[in-house]
C-alpha cells in the first residue's frame, strides 16, 4: 500500500507538471482554457489522493473547492468573457515554442534539484510533491512571462496558484485555513483581473496589453 500510495501521488503530481507543459505551448485561447480546467481537475485528484493517504478529511474540501471553482466556474466564466468580448482567439507568444519548452524543462530540472537538495530528511512523499509543486509554479510564471495576452496571463497566474495548493496539500498538517485563504485569494485575483479586462476592453478595444504600453507612450 505504501508503494502504491506513493506511486499514485507521484503520477498525479507529474500529471500536473505535464498539463503545465501543455499550457506552455498552447497558442489558442479556448484550448488554453480547457487545459486550465484539466489542470484544476488533476489538482483536485491529487489533493483528494493526499487527503486519502494522509487521512486528513479537510483536504477533501480543498479538492472540492479546486474542482468546483477552478475546473468549472472560472473556465466557464473566462469562456464567456472571451465570447462576449470577441477576443482574438490566437495568443501571441513572445518566444517560439521550442525555446519555451526547453526553458520549461530546465526549470523543472532546477526545481527538482533545489527541492531534493533542500529537504533531505523530509518524508519522501512530501518531498516529491514539493519538487513538482515548485516546477508547476515556475512553469506558471513562465507561461505568464511568455504571453502577450491578458487572458493568457490570468491563466498562467492561476496555474501558478495551483502549484501553491499542491505544495500546501503535500505538506502534512497544513491547516485548512491556509488553503481556503489561498483559494479565495485566487478568486479575488480572478475578479480583479476580470474587471481590469473589461476596463481595458472598454478603453482600448483590445485585451492585448501592448495597447497599454502604446498608451503610455513607451517603446517596446
Amino acid at each position: 500500500m505504501e508503494g502504491l500510495a506513493f506511486d499514485i501521488a507521484h503520477l498525479l503530481a507529474g500529471g500536473l507538471v505535464l498539463v503545465s507543459f501543455m499550457m506552455l505551448y498552447q497558442d489558442r485561447l479556448y484550448a488554453l482554457l480547457n487545459l486550465f480546467a484539466l489542470h484544476a481537475v488533476v489538482l483536485a485528484l491529487s489533493v483528494a489522493w493526499q487527503a486519502h493517504v494522509q487521512g486528513a478529511p479537510h483536504l477533501y474540501i480543498t479538492a472540492a473547492i479546486a474542482l468546483v471553482f477552478k475546473a468549472i466556474v472560472i473556465p466557464v466564466a473566462l469562456h464567456r468573457i472571451v465570447q462576449r468580448l470577441g477576443i482574438h482567439r490566437e495568443i501571441e507568444t513572445v518566444i517560439g515554442v521550442g525555446p519555451t519548452m526547453l526553458a520549461g524543462m530546465g526549470l523543472v530540472a532546477l526545481a527538482i534539484s533545489v527541492m531534493l537538495q533542500a529537504t533531505p530528511e523530509a518524508d519522501p512523499l512530501a518531498r516529491e510533491d514539493l519538487a513538482f509543486a515548485l516546477a508547476v509554479i515556475l512553469l506558471g510564471l513562465l507561461t505568464m512571462v511568455t504571453r502577450r495576452n491578458a487572458v493568457g496571463q490570468v491563466v498562467g497566474f492561476m496555474s501558478l496558484e495551483n502549484g501553491l495548493i499542491l505544495a500546501a496539500a503535500g505538506a502534512k498538517g497544513m491547516p485548512l485555513v491556509v488553503e481556503i485563504s489561498v483559494a479565495f485569494s485566487v478568486l479575488i485575483a480572478f475578479i480583479v483581473i476580470g474587471i481590469f479586462l473589461f476596463r481595458i476592453r472598454e478603453r482600448f478595444d483590445t485585451v492585448d496589453i501592448q495597447a497599454l504600453d502604446r498608451h503610455r507612450g513607451e517603446r517596446r
Partner: peptide, 20 residues
C-alpha cells in the same frame, strides 16, 4: 517605465537566479 510583462520577467529571472 517597463511593460507589465517585463516586470514579470524581472521577477521571474530573479527567482530563477536565486534558485540557481
Amino acid at each position: 517605465f517597463l511593460t507589465i510583462r517585463r516586470y514579470l520577467s524581472l521577477v521571474f529571472l530573479a527567482l530563477v537566479g536565486l534558485l540557481l
